[in-house]
Simulated assay, not measured.
Amino acid sequence: MRLTFLGSTSDGGSCPTLYATDRDTYVVQGDLVTDLEALAGLRDVLDGEGFVEIPKELLRFAPRD
């Protein structure tokens, strides 16, 4: 998978950050969701899937197709 940096709302080079892939998907870098109540609300979670929390403003870097 090849990643292309799209943007970040962080000043120090840490998360959150948004990347586009060469597979027509996005990868987000953000805080890992560990809240058990929040995790209990997720549906159809497959092995190997993870969840990160990002601010809404990060999506301004996503291309509008």
Rank of each mutant, 00 (worst) to 15 (best):
M1V: 15
R2A: 11
R2C: 13
R2S: 13
L3H: 09
T4S: 15
T4Y: 15
T4H: 13
F5E: 03
F5K: 08
F5I: 10
F5Q: 02
L6C: 01
L6G: 05
L6V: 03
G7S: 13
G7L: 13
G7R: 11
S8Y: 04
S8I: 05
S8Q: 10
S8D: 00
S8C: 07
T9L: 06
T9M: 11
D11G: 14
D11M: 12
D11P: 08
G12R: 14
G13T: 08
S14L: 09
C15R: 11
C15K: 10
P16F: 00
P16Q: 09
T17R: 01
L18E: 03
L18P: 01
Y19S: 12
A20Y: 01
A20D: 02
A20H: 06
A20G: 11
T21V: 04
T21R: 07
T21L: 03
D22E: 12
R23Y: 08
R23L: 15
D24G: 12
D24R: 13
D24Y: 13
T25C: 12
T25G: 05
T25F: 10
V27M: 10
V27N: 08
V27E: 07
V27K: 05
V27G: 02
V27C: 08
V28Q: 01
G30H: 03
G30R: 06
D31S: 14
D31W: 11
D31V: 12
D31Y: 06
D31L: 13
L32H: 12
L32E: 15
V33A: 08
T34M: 14
T34V: 14
T34C: 13
D35S: 06
D35N: 14
D35L: 05
L36V: 15
E37T: 15
E37W: 06
A38V: 15
A38P: 07
L39Q: 11
L39A: 09
L39E: 08
A40M: 06
A40N: 02
G41H: 07
G41S: 14
L42S: 02
L42R: 07
L42P: 04
L42T: 09
D44V: 07
D44Q: 11
D44T: 04
V45Y: 09
L46G: 01
L46A: 00
G48R: 10
G48P: 11
G48Q: 10
G50D: 08
F51P: 01
F51I: 03
K56F: 07
L58F: 01
L58C: 06
L58D: 07
L58H: 03
L59G: 01
L59F: 04
L59K: 00
L59N: 00
L59C: 04
F61S: 06
F61H: 00
F61N: 00
A62C: 04
A62H: 00
R64S: 12
R64E: 12
D65W: 02
